[in-house]
Every structure is written in structure tokens, then in C-alpha cells.
């Protein structure tokens, strides 16, 4: 891996974070009225009785530093972000935004990492098999069905799954992360964990079933190209076994561009799963985001969106750093 490539990737990562945080800084200040006023106005409009409003106003004045020049505000803002200080929640004052986020991270991270990796792996194989001559017809038909599901948004699929498996058949729970009233036992409680997994199955299935088709589509296109390459003909001429030709010669080459695609589609995946969480009242960041929106909790809204962007950028950086290990040709000129 050469240094230039590394610097470029890290640079893009930092730039992305910077742009996202600057947008987060600008949007409240560009909206009509001053941000604290907007926040409190929204609170009043809701008719909320605010117990410690004086304290909140003080905290927000200090945070936004509205009496200082904009550039000072900006630098202070970036400084606190760099310390992951995202301010206080309005709805749950004096909880900090960081508290709220760290309580919901494990669920979102767990759901997203498992589904994304599984979706990617299944999609890659399915897409490759769809084009591979020796694949049985039945398998090709099944894969084609997934291909058709590619354009269906996660949340619509989630609704359909809930309708069948939860409302009609009653096999799976439709919301929450554990059965009502369930409390974890001492240490690692395997049953509690299994309960969480059980509650995660429908949300996970919605994300996966709707996501596989996209990879199948991308992989199909790349596989057609790779199967026409001279090195595939030579692999066959060498008398290699079909299985090896498929895995080492065709699939490995065709899947490389999909890694770049994975980096690009992560945002889509995260957005989609945010809404899936909300549909299932799955207590991850998407659900928190929805609650914050309903209660006009601006700092939490901004904190969560910023954190999601940060996570995506980090994941992309990770993918970019792994990529050269998979493709020896990379000295990297992005097309």
C-alpha cells in the first residue's frame, strides 16, 4: 500500500467529517431567527412545561456562544466536536447527547454490521451464481426473485414482513428488542441474548431481503465481464476444477468492484435501516432519531445524524484500507 493512497483516503475521510459538521453548524444559523430561540419556540409550541428552562437556556447560550463572532463560535464548535462533546438533550436534560447515542449504539451497530455483511456476502455469491453456467435452474429462479426485490425500499418490505409473520401468523414479535418485562440475569444471560436475537430477526430480514438484489445486480454485470476474460478461458484450458475456477478466477475478480460499491451504498443502507428501526421500535439510533424529531430535540437530532455520518465515513475508510490487500493492482486511481 503506498503512502499517497493512504493519505488520499484519510484526507477524504477528514474532509467528509468536516463538511458534515460544518453543515450541522450552518443549518441552525441559516434558519430564520436565532437557534436558541428556534429551539425554545419549538418547545413552547409543543406546549411542554419546561421545569428547568432557565438552566437549559443558559446551557444553550453558552454552547452556541451567540454573543461571540461567528468564527469563534465555529472554532469552539469544532473543538467540542473533536472531543465528541455533542451537547445536551432538551427532552432529557441534563442527559448529554453522547449518553443517548452510546445507549443506542450497540443495537444499531449489531443490527447493521450483521445484516450488511450477510447481505453483501449472500448477494455476491448469488449474483455470481446467476451468471455461472453450471448453476441449477431452481437456484437461478430464486436469485431472480431477489433481483426483483432490489428496488423495494427496506421499510415497505418491513411492513409486508410484519403483516405476514407478525400480524397474520404471529411467529415473530413486531416491536421492541426484548419481550415485555424481561430483565437480564447475572453476567451474560444467554436467554436474554437469544430474546434480543429473536426480536431482531424481522428487522434484519427486511434489510437483507431488500438489500441482496442490489448486490446481485452489480455482481451479475461484473461477472459477465469477467467470464469473457482471457484468463478464464485459460483457467479452463489448464484443467482446473470448476469450483476453483468459479471461486478463485471468476468470483474473486468480479467482486472487487463491489467493495467500492459497498462504500458508496453504505449511506443508503444506514438511512434505510434507520427507518426500519423506527418501524420496529428497535431501540437503536434510528428510533432515537425519530423520538428526538417528535420532541423537537434538536441537539439529539444533530448529534445522531453527525454520529451516523462519522460511522459511515469510518466504515468507508476501513473498506478503502482493506481494498489494496484484496486487489494487488491498486496504487489507486479511482475511476
Amino acid at each position: 500500500m503506498n503512502l499517497q493512497y493512504l493519505l488520499k483516503r484519510v484526507g477524504l475521510f477528514l474532509l467528509t467529517i468536516w463538511v458534515a459538521s460544518t453543515l450541522n453548524f450552518l443549518i441552525p444559523r441559516l434558519s430564520p431567527g436565532d437557534p436558541v430561540g428556534a429551539i425554545l419556540g419549538a418547545m413552547q409550541a409543543q406546549g411542554a412545561t419546561i421545569a428547568n428552562s432557565a438552566e437549559i437556556i443558559e446551557a444553550f447560550r453558552a454552547r452556541f456562544g451567540l454573543d461571540e463572532p461567528v468564527y469563534v463560535q465555529y472554532v469552539k464548535y469544532l473543538w467540542s466536536l473533536a472531543h465528541l462533546d455533542l451537547g445536551y438533550s432538551i427532552a432529557h436534560f441534563p442527559s448529554t447527547v453522547t449518553d443517548i447515542i452510546s445507549n443506542s449504539i450497540p443495537y444499531t451497530l449489531g443490527l447493521l454490521s450483521v445484516t450488511t455483511v450477510l447481505t453483501f456476502v449472500i448477494g455476491i455469491f448469488a449474483g455470481a451464481l446467476l451468471v455461472w453456467q453450471a448453476t441449477p435452474r431452481a437456484a437461478k429462479t430464486l436469485i431472480t426473485i431477489f433481483l426483483m426485490l432490489a428496488p423495494v425500499p427496506y421499510y415497505l418490505l418491513a411492513m409486508i414482513l410484519v403483516f405476514f409473520f407478525s400480524f397474520t401468523l404471529g411467529i415473530f414479535p413486531n416491536s421492541g428488542i426484548t419481550s415485555p418485562g424481561r430483565i437480564p440475569g447475572e453476567g451474560f444471560d444467554i436467554n436474554y441474548f437469544l430474546d434480543i436475537v429473536y426480536h431482531s430477526i424481522l428487522p434484519a430480514l427486511s434489510i437483507m431481503i431488500a438489500g441482496i438484489g442490489g448486490w446481485v445486480l452489480g455482481m451479475r454485470g461484473m461477472m459477465v465481464t469477467v467470464l469473457g476474460e482471457d484468463y478464464l478461458t485459460l483457467a479452463e484450458a489448464k484443467g482446473l476444477k470448476n469450483r476453483r475456477i468459479f471461486l478463485r478466477y471468476a468470483l474473486r475478480n468480479a467482486m472487487l468492484p463491489q467493495f467500492t460499491a459497498l462504500a458508496i451504498t453504505l449511506g443508503y443502507v444506514v438511512s434505510g435501516s434507520v427507518i426500519v428501526e423506527l418501524l420496529f421500535s428497535f431501540p437503536g439510533m434510528g428510533y432515537q432519531l425519530f423520538r428526538a424529531i417528535s420532541s423537537n430535540d434538536f441537539p439529539v437530532i444533530q448529534g445522531i445524524t453527525f454520529f451516523l455520518v462519522l460511522s459511515i465515513a469510518t466504515a468507508i475508510l476501513g473498506i478503502d484500507l482493506i481494498y489494496p490487500l484484496l486487489d494487488p493492482r491498486i496504487t489507486y486511481n479511482r475511476k
Binding site: 476474460e229 482471457d230 484468463y231 478461458t233 485459460l234 478463485r248 474473486r252 494487488p328
Partner: peptide, 13 residues
């Protein structure tokens, strides 16, 4: 076989 497109006949990865 020493193939016609030897340039592209080796698996690049």
C-alpha cells in the same frame, strides 16, 4: 496452450 491474448491470460489477482 500459450494463448493468443497472453497479456490478459493471467489472473490479475
Amino acid at each position: 496452450l500459450v494463448p493468443q491474448g497472453a497479456m490478459n491470460s493471467l489472473n490479475p489477482i
